[in-house]
Every structure is written in structure tokens, then in C-alpha cells.
Design a binder for these strands. Sequence first.
DNA 1: CTGAAAGCGCTAACAC
DNA 2: GTGTTAGCGCTTTCAG
Lengths: 341, 341
Amino acid sequence: MNGSTARRVTIRDVAERAQVSISTVSHAFSGSRPISQATRDRIFRAAAELGYDPNPSARSLRTGRSGIIGLILRPRFALCGTPDRAETFNRLVGSVATEMLRRKVGLIHVPDLNDPSVSSVPMDGCIVAHPYGADEVLAELLRRGVPVVTIEEDPERPEFTWTVRLDYTTVVTALLDHLRDQGAGSVALLTGSEDNAWNRRTRETYLAWCERHGHAARVELLSEGLSVDDAAATIRPLLASPERPDAVVVDTSDFAAITAEIATTRGLRVPEDLMIASLTDTEHSRSAVPPITAMDLNHERLAENAVELMLSRLAGLETPPEAVVIAPALRVRPSTQRSAG
Amino acid sequence: MNGSTARRVTIRDVAERAQVSISTVSHAFSGSRPISQATRDRIFRAAAELGYDPNPSARSLRTGRSGIIGLILRPRFALCGTPDRAETFNRLVGSVATEMLRRKVGLIHVPDLNDPSVSSVPMDGCIVAHPYGADEVLAELLRRGVPVVTIEEDPERPEFTWTVRLDYTTVVTALLDHLRDQGAGSVALLTGSEDNAWNRRTRETYLAWCERHGHAARVELLSEGLSVDDAAATIRPLLASPERPDAVVVDTSDFAAITAEIATTRGLRVPEDLMIASLTDTEHSRSAVPPITAMDLNHERLAENAVELMLSRLAGLETPPEAVVIAPALRVRPSTQRSAG
DNA sequence: CTGAAAGCGCTAACAC
DNA sequence: GTGTTAGCGCTTTCAG
């Protein structure tokens, strides 16, 4: 019943059964040359009877293409991380998978590019999500000549335009302006430790904004790898200090939610005494009390555009002059709305 | 700079440069036979200098293994569906991907098994999630001799034990008992249209429970493919009817949330006049007003166990006598808590 | 319209 | 400890 001992059926078996040569079988399947109706029928019948399905490795070896696109998610805290990171990971992976399935292209999660003990995977191209500055995996792929498209740019590779990137400047500026409109006197930034576009661009934008407005910048590090408790330990003194800011922008949504909790515990009202915003939008920000204003990275559109770009690239599109730019969305919620509005 | 015209470097190039035969290079990489230190050094240096990386298709063709595991998610509404379906899809895909990455095995999303225009993928085994009754994709994979593990059983294949399944009976019974404890007089079930274990088992359990308690069963169909508006159109008459139930179990969380909304609009208090529970747990159930009691399918543990089972299977484990059983979790929330407790 | 045959890059006998 | 060689199953010239 279980055909575990049965040899796989090959093109040769089909040829034999249909009384033709293997090349005819091959052409019948690929349609790459005219075959008489009678022959073609015999071949398809034989194939169906035998349950033939072509060996993808043999085909790839021969043609040099696999029809499969790889996906590498760079942030090291994406796995085994906190709930915020898991949700973000799921959403990006899910979005890319959805888009690939819709287009009927194989998607493969690349396990570990540089571990020689891990078998490498046959891919025609690779999407690298959220690369670091001077990302080494990206560099290795380029060195190997793999066609790459990145989701967010490697900040050290501005010349690499096979990229879908986010326009952080506009959104973060809008957020800071919004906080000021709502009466924020001093805005602190709790930024992540990962050296990627997300952290770099948002921090740069914050610093530029501070300078433009003669606002004293206050940046604290809050690593994405911290546990919620550790994060709390960093946040508490900030809120206890006499020079406590009256608005904080926290990198990840779960730490933002913790901030709201801590504030409430200390008797600080949100948003009246402390406004809180986060640079990632997940259930933590949406269902915090009060709900927290957040920047949504728009993974679905990032994924769509990255897949589209990759397919164009594989189809022969020339190197584009500029990266594709996507706007993150700013979701304004009660945590930053002092006035009704 | 971009090596797009450069020929890929093969084992032959490395052999030539290191002044050894290609088999020696092969063995040096696989470690499958002793190589003198000097030779091995020369080989690795040559490989590094040339930037050699082995061709996975050639290797798979030769060895018959690819080191890649496939994933097929069966529910047709998993894609392009409503938010509940998207979140569920993301969570399952994310969980499987996370687990595979942790184990450093390649994971591939299989695009479309039966579309001949889609190139088939090299996989050593395949995980099929949420198969239908007498699932045809599952059947096709088995016919091809692909080692399969399913997440949830195909209800028409009780003999197939390479499965991680959910113990719905216990949890759904507990839910119904809970509703009765909270004073439910009549409980209706709004069940999905997909013919899979989730819908079958939960419905069976409901019917058995009704019979056991002399409770008039009331089952309505609410297809997972419905838009939220269409679902609302099905739900409204139910709540308007004079024989309106005072508790409903709704298959998906977003439709449960809609039910809560409709009830509130009609002046029904939840849970006092109407208790609501759902058989899927997502943000919709958690952040509905009031929060909705839900069964959590525990995708993370399903994924973990399925991957584990697949790796054991590929490592030669004998056919297990029984499926692995996981408990879904019952998350009791205010939507079904009339008394404080 | 069809067949013969080379060879994609690698592994694993089998020799020495 | 190392080399030679026969394929894995397929696509694709090149001949007819």
C-alpha cells in the first residue's frame, strides 16, 4: 500500500511505456516542439498510468533554474523573541508566503547560509528582509551572484536599488509634529540596538527634528533582545527621574505597552502626563490601555512589492535607478491624543 | 562588480586549483573519508578563494535527498480571506517556519501540486496542514510516495497516524459544560462549511453533547468564505428570531466578534442575554467588546510537534501506532461569564 | 515529426 | 590517502 520501496518513476519509464524516446517525452511535457496528437496522447496516458512526476533536481541541474525564491529574515531577535517580534515575524513571513502562493512560485526559507553543515538550497533569487548595515549575508549572496531583492535597504549600501524601502522620514516627522501639537514638552526616544534601517532612519529623523526645533534630544537604548522585565528595568528610572520626558517614542510595541503599564502604576496619566508612541504596530499597541499610537510597517505591501520586484528582476528587468518606496502608516490612538481630535 | 556573467564555480574548479581530484574535494566537504591535513587545507583554501558553493540540485539529484521539507496549507480560505483567516494563516506558517529555522532545515511552501505549469519542488517530505476529508492533495502525495505528516487528521483516513491532531472533544465539551454552568438555556452552533477535522469534530462533539443532555441541537452554516457583511446577514435573523438562542458558538473569531456587535446593537447584553464563544482565537476575539471566550488551536505546539514528527519519520522512525494528540486551549473570557468566576 | 547522445555538478563505488 | 569513473534524471542540441 505504501510505496516506500517502489522506485520513483522517471522519464525513461514513461518513454518505454509510450514507445517513444525520452526526448519526445520531455518535449511533450514542455511543449517546446510540435508532437503529433497520437504520440502526445500515448505519452500523457503512460505518464498518468505510471504516476510520473518530473524530478525537480534533475530539471534544475540541467536548466540552471529551480523556480524557487528564497527568503531570509535578518533580525536576530525575530525568532525565539518576545511576542512583538513573533507577531512581526509571522506577519512578514505570512505576507511573503501569501504573495508567493498567489503567484504560484515556490518560496523557501533559507535556514543558515553560512553553516556548511546545513545543505544549501536551490533558489533562483533571494529576498533579504531587514538587512543590517553592511549586512554580511547580503554581501555573501551578492558575491555568489544570487539575484537579491531586499525589504528595507542595507543602510551602508545606498547604491543597491533592488530594494523596497520605507519612507520613515515623513512618518516619524509627522509623529513628532503630532506629539508637539498635543503639547509635548520633551520627547525621548527609546531606540533599538539592531543596526538596521528601521533603527537608523528613525533615530536620524528624531535627531534632525530635535535640532530643527531646538529640542534637547534624549535617546536611550532599549535592545530588542531584552525580556519584558529587563525592558521594564530600563524604563522605570526614566519615568521616575525628575527630568522625566512627557512623551516617549518606544521602538517596539510590547515595550511601549510596558511603558504604559509602568506609567499607570506610578500614577502618571496617559496621555495627559505622558504620551507614548511605538515604532512597530502589533496587538500590544492596539490593545494596550490606553491604545498606543504606532507606526505600522505595512508588511503586506512590503511583501507584495518585494515579490513583484524579484519576479521582474528574474524576468530580466534592468537595474532600477531607485528603490521602491512604501509609506509606513501612522496609527494615531488615544495614548497621544490629549485633545479630542 | 556584479558577477552576473561569471560562470558558477564548480567542484571541478576547486579540484583543479587545489591540484587534487574532484572526488577528494567532495570527500573533504562531506567528511566521508579521511583526508590528509595538507590536502584538506589546500582544498578549503582553494574553495574559499574561488568562492565555491556546492550546487544543491546536483547534490540532490545524486543523493536523492534535498534536506528540504514542504508545507501545504489546505484550507482554501487561508489566503485572500478575512482578517481572522490571515492571522491564523500567518500564525501557523510563522510557527512552522520558526521551528524549521531553529532546526536549520529548509522549509518550502509548495505552490500548487497539481498545476503542471508550476514547477514541482524538491522535498524530502511534506507537512500538510488541515487536510479535508478524503483530501486529494494528501492522496496525491501518498501516491507519489512522499513522506507526509499532517497537522490535524484527514477525517476519512483514521488509519494514517503520521499526524498531530487536536483533542477537540475534551475542549468543546468543556466549553459547552461551561456555557450550561453559566446558565445557557439553548446553545446554537454556527459551524463552518469546510469539511475538515476542525468543523467535523467540533460539530460531532456538539451534537453528542446535545443528545447527552437532551438539548435541542441547533446548527447553522456560516461559511468561512463569507465576507463579514454576508456573515452578518446570516447572524442577524438568528438573533432577531423569537426562539433566539441565549448562547452561540461561532466557528471563526471575526464572525464571533460581529455577532457581539450585532447583539449590542440590538440591545442584547453580552453575556447576560447572549453568551458568545468562538472556535478560533485571534485578535478579534481577544479585543472584542466584551472579550470573547475562544478555543485556541495552539498552532505553535502543532507546528513544533509536526516538524519533530517529520524529522523522526525521515530519520527512519517506524509508523507510530497512534497520532500525536495536542490539547487546544480554552480561553474563557467575559463573553461567557455571567457570574464572577 | 522523432531519436540519439552529450552533459548539467555532484557522490559513491571501486580501484590503487 | 587519493584518483577514476559511472551514473542520478532531465533538457537540448544535432541528426535524421
